[in-house]
């Protein structure tokens, strides 16, 4: 579905990505793991068109999308949920969600979609009239995911959805990710929290200093001693 082939990217003279290749098949959850500054977010931003690739190709359903504008990439159904709290703080929760459907003009269908998002996040329904800036961190994360769903994604790219959330909330968010996945949406998940990410994914890539250093089925990665050492707190080699 999504194929990244030999992607290079740089900020000025500083190289951020070197020869990154990865695949997401339809219906898969794929995770991209790595430490801070490894280039995970840059990879997503290249796919979304926010950062121009310096080399390589990004192919979505047999179409090279690496030169498309951000809004045209969104139109093809690739929606990124960015890291942090990127919401419209001074607008209501409902306005935030409805803006997610900005490219879809059919108001009737957008309303139905909104009802589905509210079913998935009852908390957002309760707070629909509140300013988004008044939501808690976990609720803001849910709002961003809900807003992305309003855009009717075919591939959802989540950037560190667990960031800054309590363990219970992380579990909730990942349950929702599984539910979204079951509805047939492919997911590319960027995480520092390797344990939860590998748990829901079927395939994983590990990015180190801008290069893919390891990849394989998630279950194999979870048992790989190198991965354990670096990303899972070294539990396997501890005696």
């Amino acid at each position: 579905m999504l194929r990244i082939e030999g992607l290079h990217a740089s900020y000025g003279k500083v190289s951020a990505l070197e020869n990154v290749s990865l695949n997401v098949e339809a219906g898969q959850i794929v995770c991209l793991l790595g430490a801070n500054g490894a280039g995970k977010t840059t990879t997503l931003n290249c796919v979304s068109g926010l950062v121009a690739a310096a080399g390589g190709r990004i192919v979505f359903e047999d179409e090279d999308i690496s030169r498309l504008r951000v809004e045209d990439i969104v139109r093809r159904g690739i929606i990124q949920v960015p890291e942090g709290r990127e919401i419209f703080t001074a607008m209501s929760v409902e306005d935030n969600l409805m803006l997610g459907a900005w490219q879809h003009k059919n108001n009737q269908r957008n309303r139905e979609q909104l009802a589905q998002v509210y079913d998935l996040f009852p908390r957002l329904r309760e707070r629909h009239a509140q300013f988004a800036g008044t939501l808690s961190g976990g609720e803001q994360q849910m709002l961003m995911i809900g807003r992305a769903l309003m855009a009717k994604p075919r591939l959802l790219m989540l950037d560190e959805p667990s960031l800054g959330l309590s363990p219970i909330l992380v579990q909730q968010v990942f349950d929702i990710i599984k539910t979204i996945h079951k509805s047939g949406i492919a997911i590319l998940l960027v995480e520092q929290n390797a344990r939860v990410a590998l748990d829901v994914s079927s395939y994983g890539y590990i990015l180190e200093n801008g290069e893919i250093n390891l990849h394989g089925p998630a279950s194999a990665l979870a048992e790989n001693p190198q991965v354990h050492e670096a990303y899972l707190g070294g539990a396997a080699v501890r005696h």
Partner: peptide, 11 residues
């Protein structure tokens, strides 16, 4: 309010 978030939903 947030140009980055706006771009990412296709505005």
């Amino acid at each position: 309010q947030n140009p980055r978030a706006a771009a990412l939903i296709g505005i």
